[in-house]
Design a binder for these strands. Sequence first.
DNA 1: GCCGTTTTCGGCCCGACTGTTTTCAGTCG
Length: 575
Amino acid sequence: MTSTKITNQKIAKLFDEIALYLRAENVQFKPQAYEIAAENIISLEEELSDSYKKCGKKCIDEIPGIGKSMVEKIEELVQTGRLKYYDDLKKKYPFDMLALTSIQDIGPKTALTLFKKLKIKTIDDLLSAAEKGSIAKIPSMGVKTQRNVLRGIQFLKASSGRRIIHQVLPLAQNIVKKLQNISGVTHIDIAGSLRRKKETIGDIDLLATTTNPKQLIKTFTSLPEVEQVLEVGPKKAMVRYTFGMQGDILILKPSEYGAALIHFTGSKEHNILLREFAIKKKMKLSEHGLVHGKKIIAAKTEKQVYTALGLQEIPPEIRVGADEIKLAQKHKIPELIPYDSLKGDLQVQTDWSDGDSSIEEMALAAKNYRLSYIAITDHTQSLTITNGLNEKRLLEQGKEIDKLNKKLKNFRVLKSTECDIKKDGSLDLSDRALKTLDVVSVSVHSNRKMEKNAMTERIIKAMKHPFVHIFFHPSGRIVNIRDGYEIEMDKIIKAAKEYHVALEVNGSERLDLHEKYIRQAVELGVKLVINSDCHTQTHFTNLDFGIGQARRGWATKADVLNTKTVDAFLKAIKK
DNA sequence: GCCGTTTTCGGCCCGACTGTTTTCAGTCG
């Protein structure tokens, strides 16, 4: 055994790189198998090294897209930290395949040619070769290719990778708003990963129909947000925005809009499965429509295309290329929780701890956001950095809430807390204090580096506490910022069921729970709440991101307790 | 290399665009 711990990230990256080498060698079918495996590994929440420790090869083999050969490779990686198959490829092709192919217009074959002809191994090698003009001298390449390479390197150096959806969606919606009022525009939609509500977004894809394409393209490319126009044609344009992302717009025929929407919404894996499914039904699906023989049978709307395939319409959030098509065939896709269906928010911080507004200000902001109740969940005493509440202040806060509730019409403020779970699993407030509250929520903020079993035990102990109703941001992660603590989420979900504790889907930049565990919880009948975790009046918009996350985890309205009225909610959390 | 409601063997997504070609390979979404 080795001390090197190999992460899923690393394994997926290795598989992606193997796929590229195989593509360069023109190997058929295998590259895709490695890519699918890599994609599936990335979306796992649990580390493969842990799964392997827990139940060996069996757990690995269950992952879709991973068969006998890849199980062995993962085993080798987990045990030794190395993979001979990969090392051999690397000996044969000692250049940075991943880096080179991250440049636009350079794929595996071009990268291999560059290595063979010019001994180019890195992006720096490539840059100096392009500047010297030696790329244009390679047969099959020319001056234009060389110029594109330089442009691609520039772009790569300037771009900052994938951003969390919270930052991107408002920008995209703002752009859509500016475009939809242009004369002639009949449809304009966000597609791609943004429409699927993925946690992080790489670029902004827009689709449109219009009777005046010229005008739309002109406006799109001259928006104040546009820093540089990268490409412009009669039906397509690509730009770079001032906020450092790339975006494009495609103008489509209204008669093909649905098929195109499916195609450009993705995911790629979903599209592949959908097309394979069409083939089995003796049909052919492309962005232009669903074709049988030479006849287009469906294209105008997404629903028509799915229906013509004999499938239930599949919501964008679950188009991931897993089991959604199989279930759509059996009409077993549940109605996912609708946006705008939350009536309350159970995690709201105020200026009593680390929020920036008063209880009343937060209540009015929530009311304005069409909510009818919120729970005030300021931190507790051991979180001194947030000015957490001790028992005395909590009781004072309760009095203030009582006063406020008398004043407010058609709105209720619940007395609550985000009570810290201490290292030993005990709570940061006494039972006497907790008893005065309408809702008791708990979470972990300290001693994050505990060993997995101990952390799991610590949390389960807190969940067992008879007064506890909700466990906040269960994994402790923040997207793009930090991973969660080590925890056995399966056990936490089972404990939630056993002790009647709801799990939070946190809509802030935590996006915690992960969609895999949301689905697992839903399947087990564990109840969820979706919260904004807002610390300021404008952040109730986080609720929508929470709903998006819950939808990606196949949650329905019935699974989410704060879709209920306040009285029904309070009744539902009772132990 | 994976997978199975036509299959444990024989399949494996589709079309547009670009740049380099003189009929197409490579990349992308």
